[in-house]
Design a protein around this nucleic acid. Structure first.
Length: 169
DNA sequence: GCCAACGTTGGC
DNA sequence: GCCAACGTTGGC
């Protein structure tokens, strides 16, 4: 069976806590602390090489621009057990999770390329490809969600990213 | 299995 | 800071 082509996702993060510049600074980051079953299931579907839009939520008071997509991250390790679920000192500790049957998963991500400027949520919402996304539907709070190839390309085009260059990364 | 109370998310 | 929307919890 041939390997499936890389798929696309969107990862939400509050830039005051951990923004795209932080990802660039650290180079690689375990995406832990996801405690929603639907989001966890998406994490488990991720494969190495998948590309993720890095979304800044709640960025109004942030120094790194408006709420929106700041760049693209790459999955560099597929899902494995989230370390924080076993840490009693962590707010993400889950006493009901056992090491032989971990409840929560994480992936590792690394920066792929930054957008020239944050692509604002308003702009994203206006794109026809994004009309039907959980991101733009009100009331959705998923922190990890799938993105179609059309949505991914439309976001890059709207951000002014040169596609051939993007493919070289 | 129901559902009210509660906590969290996230745009504004 | 507000609050609507949503997921989870726990009493019954």
């Amino acid at each position: 069976m041939p390997p499936s082509p890389p798929r696309h996702w969107l990862l939400k993060s509050e830039p005051d806590v951990f923004g795209y510049p932080d990802l660039v600074r650290v180079g690689r980051e375990p995406w832990n602390g996801v405690r929603n079953y639907q989001a966890r299931n998406f994490l488990r579907e991720m494969r190495e090489g998948d590309l993720c839009l890095f979304y800044h939520s709640n960025a109004r008071h942030s120094r790194v621009g408006p709420t929106g997509v700041a760049g693209v991250a790459r999955v560099v390790r597929a899902a494995y057990p989230d370390n924080l679920q076993f840490d009693p000192d962590s707010p993400y500790h889950d006493p009901k999770s056992t090491s032989d049957n971990p409840r929560w998963s994480m992936v590792d991500v690394a920066p792929a390329f930054a957008f020239p400027a944050v692509l604002p949520l308003d702009t994203l919402r206006a794109l026809p490809e994004w009309q039907d996304s959980p991101l733009t539907r009100r009331g959705t709070r998923l922190s990890v969600l799938p993105v179609t190839p059309e949505q991914f390309q439309a976001a890059l085009a709207a951000a002014g990213v040169d596609l051939p260059d993007a493919h070289l990364v």
